[in-house]
Amino acid sequence: MPRTRKLLLTTLVVGATSAVAGLGVFAAFTAQTTNTGNQIASGTVAIGQNSGGVAIYNVTNGGPGQTTQRCIRVTYTGTLPATVKLFRSNTVTQGTAFNLQVERGSGLNPTTNPYPSCTGFTPDSPGGSLYNGTLIGFPTSYLAGPDAKGAAWAQGDTVDYRFTITVIDDPTPNTHDTVIQSGSHAFTWEARNN
């Protein structure tokens, strides 16, 4: 056998053996499992009221001891449980001249007795209040504000509030010859998911 032919034959045998060995290396049984359809979406925190943008109270010419009661309904529509606190804006002037009481309750029927009527209002804890003190003393931040329900709010929860604003009597002579004004202020119910 010529030398070249021997060499070619050897190369062929080595190649064929390598090919078979290679197939052995790359061959494998396989299996997979795939998890599909993954998504993530946030929940919501949303709260609103039935005032339609109209102030809870707008008292003029208030006399000593005169009280004004107004009610409002607050509804939570977020999907996440939330803690809601009530606070006022930091825009009150002469706030020591007025007393504010805020009570939590239920029973309003705004469709028959429109906002801000208090007809039907029943306080949750008669004699108890979320707040009862001078207007100036009402908290002005979420952290300091009273818990508006005392429990977490869930979607669809509705709570009624009664605001009683009073001009504090002051018998000091000659101190009421000009108007004492609170200034325009706002009340905010803020919901936070814990």
């Binding site: 925190v45 709260i47 609103g48 010419n61 977020g78 706002a186 009340f187 803020e190």
Partner: peptide, 25 residues
């Protein structure tokens, strides 16, 4: 102020007594 807010808070405003001597609404 006071419109039902879509976010996490709801506000109601209180207006000042701008007309001395007028009657309570």
């Amino acid at each position: 102020a006071g419109a039902g807010s879509p976010g996490g808070n709801a506000s109601a405003a209180v207006l000042p007594a701008t007309t001395p001597g007028s009657t309570t609404p």
